[in-house]
């Protein structure tokens, strides 16, 4: 009986000890106990190792997701496999999505181009597919064969390969999109627009283009931004860099507009911004067109922020402090001074 009692392992106490939750006195007493009881000491040591191992492994596994990485590596390998007929590459689960965002490239492109040329392009090459969105439809998302995801803003179209079989992953875009690119160093991801190309070298970036005006904002990693006609004319953009292509001139600038990605994030921040500029951000974010019935109200300063707020609530919040009203007709919005 006595024997049995002394061997009873008190896990609560061991855990308390190993978690550093004991007072100095308790600790001293406990250490004395394990000193005098080798069997107990062994268990404490083993448990300590358990905990360290669990923590270390958890950290590593959380940090480096082998399943996600495998998809990227495999899509690259499958070229050289003849024995194994190509299989469908699994889509990414929700759980993996966050991880992709972390490791992946983020890219945003806007370009104003006619759709016609891509229609032809699509018909000629049947291994290509396309996805498009209507004018006021933003947030349409697709997962590509390599695990990359693309979110389209309104009035945009993306042409992509069903299974990136070649040496590179190439897509064509019209309009605006947010890319989250699965990393694959062996197979570069290239976004072509009419007059430029954006190549993912490292990890994450944003591109924005309109007509012949293209903008690239790099969030992390490295991006090569080049002229379509003359690929040797290029600039390398790294974290925080903002590249602009105007006519045929490529240059690095800084982008300080914190609402640059609002259309995607639905997060808008205004700091003493004129209502006119606020309207521009809202137009871009919600795909609407705001006008004013009285030029005087355009310069009213606005300081507020919105996080995934419905458009009507945004408008009401803007109008209230200045006693304005708004009239909404489809995508047309008119802000009015209250004439009472």
């Amino acid at each position: 009986m006595e024997e049995k009692k002394s061997h009873k392992i008190e896990w609560e106490i061991i855990s308390k000890y190993l978690s550093g939750e004991m007072s100095a006195e308790e600790k001293l007493a406990f250490e004395k106990l394990i000193d005098s009881n080798p069997k107990y000491a062994k268990i404490v040591t083993a448990s300590d190792k358990d905990l360290n191992l669990i923590q270390e492994i958890n950290e590593i596994q959380q940090q480096f997701n082998a399943d996600v990485a495998w998809t990227a590596v495999k899509s690259n390998l499958s070229n050289s496999i003849k024995e194994n007929p190509s299989k469908t590459i699994p889509l990414f689960s929700r759980q993996n999505a966050k991880r992709i965002m972390q490791i992946a490239a983020m890219l945003l492109i806007t370009i104003g181009l006619g759709f016609a040329s891509y229609r032809i392009y699509t018909e000629q090459l049947t291994s290509y597919q396309s996805i498009s969105s209507e004018l006021h439809e933003s947030g349409k998302t697709i997962t590509l064969a390599d695990g990359s995801t693309v979110t389209l803003n309104g009035k945009s179209e993306l042409v992509y390969e069903k299974s990136f079989a070649g040496k590179e992953r190439r897509v064509k875009l019209t309009g605006e999109a947010f890319f989250s690119i699965a990393k694959n160093p062996a197979k570069p991801f290239i976004i072509s627009v009419e007059n430029a190309e954006v190549k993912v070298l490292g990890t994450s970036f944003n591109v924005n283009a309109n007509n012949k005006h293209v903008e690239v904002l790099v969030e992390t990693g490295k991006v090569q931004f080049s002229l379509a006609k003359k690929p040797t004319t290029n600039i390398i953009l790294e974290k925080g860099d903002f590249g602009v292509l105007q006519e045929e001139f490529l240059e690095k600038r800084t982008q300080k507009d914190e609402n640059y990605l609002s259309w995607k994030t639905q997060l808008m921040v205004f700091k003493a911004m004129s209502l006119k500029d606020v309207a521009k951000v809202i137009n871009r974010t919600y795909q609407v067109s705001i006008e004013f019935n009285d030029p005087a109200i355009q310069n009213l300063p606005i300081t507020t922020s919105f996080n995934k707020t419905p458009l009507n609530d945004v408008l009401e919040n803007l109008c209230r402090p200045y006693h304005l009203t708004y009239e909404k007709n489809g995508a047309q919005i008119i802000l009015k001074k209250d004439l009472k």
């Binding site: 392992i9 008190e10 896990w11 609560e12 106490i13 061991i14 855990s15 308390k16 190993l18 978690s19 939750e21 268990i43 083993a46 448990s47 358990d50 905990l51 669990i54």
Partner: peptide, 13 residues
């Protein structure tokens, strides 16, 4: 918390 931590530790061991 103590009781549950003990329980988990035991299971892991």
């Amino acid at each position: 918390v103590e009781a549950n931590m003990g329980k988990a530790l035991k299971a892991f061991r």
